[in-house]
Structure formats: C-alpha cells, structure tokens
Nucleic acid binder design. Sequence first.
DNA 1: TAGATTGTTAATCGATTAACAATC
DNA 2: TAGATTGTTAATCGATTAACAATC
Lengths: 217, 217
Amino acid sequence: MLQLQKGVQLLMDNKQIPDIVVGRLPLYLRTLQKMARETIQVTSSLELGERLGISAAQIRKDLSQFGEFGKQGTGYNIPFLIERIREILHIDRVWDVAVVGAGDVGRALARYQGFADRGFRVVMIFDNNPDVIGTLVADFTVQNTAGLVEAIQNAGIKVAMVSVPADQAQSVTDQLISAGVKAILNYAPISLSVPEGVWVQYIDPAVHLQRMAFYLA
Amino acid sequence: MLQLQKGVQLLMDNKQIPDIVVGRLPLYLRTLQKMARETIQVTSSLELGERLGISAAQIRKDLSQFGEFGKQGTGYNIPFLIERIREILHIDRVWDVAVVGAGDVGRALARYQGFADRGFRVVMIFDNNPDVIGTLVADFTVQNTAGLVEAIQNAGIKVAMVSVPADQAQSVTDQLISAGVKAILNYAPISLSVPEGVWVQYIDPAVHLQRMAFYLA
DNA sequence: TAGATTGTTAATCGATTAACAATC
DNA sequence: TAGATTGTTAATCGATTAACAATC
C-alpha cells in the first residue's frame, strides 16, 4: 500500500531535472569510463570531483536527483554507476545518427571513432553537391539531400548532425524535423529555430575561441 | 577632478564579469553579424532576443556590464555594437592558432573557412605520425610534434586546438602550456588539467549527443 | 508630443556549497 | 570500533526576470 502510493507519487511527481545537471552527467560518465579502463573499481565524490574540477557536493547532489547509487563510507561502485548513468541518459542502447553535409566536417564526423560505445553510430550521410553524391565516405555512399526526409523517416532516425553551410542549415533542420528527428547537433554557425520537443546543441569552434579570447591580454 | 576620480574608480573597480555573460557575447556577435549581412542597421534587445531565444532583459543586462551601447526609444546601432563586442572579446585583431593532431578533425580545422573575420586564423599544424609529418594540409606542411614547443614559442602563439587521441591530449596540453599557450580548444574526449591563467573549452560531440538523448523517449 | 526602448533596480528564481546525521 | 563517505537539509550565492523612470 505504502509501496504503491510511493510508486504513484513518483509517477505524479514527475520531478523536473535541471538541464544543467543533465549536462554534467555525460562528463561524469566519460571520466568514470576512463577510470574503469584504468581498472579502478570504486571511487568517491571527492575523487571524481578532483578529476573533473567539480565539487564533491555538487556531484552528490546531482546524482541524488536520480537515486541512491553510493554506499556510505565506501563511495560508488564504478561499473554500477556507469550503468545507472547510461540508463538515465538513454544510452543503454545505440542511436542511429544521420549526417547532413559531406564537407570536411561531415566526413570527419562520419569517420569519427569516438562514438563507439558511447551510444551512437552514424548510419547515413547526405549532401546536395552532384560531385559528392555517390562517393564513398567511411563505409557510406553519400546520398542526395533531396531524399533526406524519406530515408530518415523510413529508418526511424531520431538524431542528426548538421554540417552544411550556414545558409542551408535552417532549411535542412526543417526537413530533419519533418522526417521525425528530435535531436540535432548543429555545426553550422547559426542559431536554429525548432519547435517544442526538438533539441539542439551547438558546436561552433569560433564561438568557443572567442569566449576564451576575452580572458587573453 | 570628478572625471579623474571616476576613471580611478573604474580602474580600481575591476568589476568581475560573470563567465556566463562572456559566453553569450559570441552568440550576440554572431547574430548581429548575420543581421549586418542582411543590411539591417538597427535592432532592439527584443528583436535580437527573439533571434537567439534569449529574453530582452537578459541581453540588456549583459551588455550593461560593459557600457551603454544603445539609445532609448531606438535600440542598438548594429555596426557600432558589433565593434564594441569585438573590442570586449579582444577579437578586434587576428589571433594565430596552432592545431595539434592532423587526423580527420585536425585537418578539417586547418581547412575550416569559418574562422575568417571572426578573430582567428590557423597558422600551423602538428602531428607525431612519421607518415603524416611533411604532408600538406590546406597550405601548411605538417610539422613534427617534437618541435611544437619551440615553434609555438618562437611564433608567440597563445591559442591552440587539440585534436590528438585522448591518451596524448594531456601531454600535448602540458607542452602547449610550456610554450606559452593560454587558450586551448580541446577536441579530445578527456578532462584536461591546466594551471591558473590557462583557459580550456571542450568540444566532444558524443557528450552533446548524450545530453540530448536524456530527453528522447 | 506620443511611442518606443534603454539601463538599472528590486524581486524572484535557481544553483552551489557547507554542514552533518546516518551508516557502511 | 573508528574512519570514511554518502544523501540531504539549510544557508549562501548568483543569475534571471519584471518593472519602470529616463529619455530619445
């Protein structure tokens, strides 16, 4: 009875997790996986925090949003915590990803080895340049962007990376959304408009460099 | 006298600008430059905010940290505001940048056209693979990483991008710092340790994708 | 002038840190 | 047991928003 009520409460609770906390989980995961490769079995919020440059209190607070994963006096079992974070982030599976734009950046993304075991794999790449369509990138034949919506819809792809010129990025984004894509990693140097329920992350190296330049003499 | 005192106060003030505000300035700049290309002359905090998905109040508050750049009833002169932000960010000049690691990512960075007119230009690229050293990337001959410290020191370079495998990134970072580099854009999927006064920004596409995966069903 | 929009203040909201009982 | 470390609460700190006088 209490058990049930608790369950109901949890369901109704629908506690809103701060996005800033969500944003730190992949960093925790990356460092935990590095520790695992170093065959470390257990860690503490203090040790993990030192590796990340984050306070121990913040790590404990962040994790406590999702459950109780540690043991007093001992700390966190690393393989266990890795699995919990993978579940929380929904990367205890592999998401198929489409790349749009087969220039230098798109080709580097299609070949990138860094997605392996991190929840994603590139499965198709598009371009609108007739000289590029049909060529091979990694193991993929570059497809015509004209067929993007159908191909992505048929494959049920929910995640895409955009590496087209800035002036094509919004149009490509609109097509991706109409094809059912819900998460877009945008390399074009432009702010995108997307409807509620679609997520965008931005990678613009010039923006990152400019931010640091502020602190340069 | 009052004038002087004001100046002195400003000097002594040394008001700490929140880093989160600094981080938004490059986004404001990017959108303002897009508006300028659309030959718009004047904008308001409301209009700029709509393009960026940021509240008008936040834009005004952010800018007010650095001075009074607008005009009541009118808004902001776009070319004027662009110049002020470029000064604030210290990108009213061109920073030379070194790329370390001439794999797919490093080569894409060396060829990237997106740094033009945004305050940076790549001037050298390094790798430690004998098969790659001496080859051409864009207009640059790939140099041996063994000579990195001397070359960067001699050129007075303060900004670098790291695109080497994760297990070499900390060692490369240490060398860059000993060569005088103060700002590092790190593409290796690892947290770097750097001393006070050195700035790091991270680009890890898997981290960005993982963050969005949380919101996917 | 009337309308628009700034820069700034005060109020609100949210995130981080400090501290500690619980407990392994 | 003694020492260590969690999960959580309360206190602090910082960021965002609302509101408006000033003024173009």
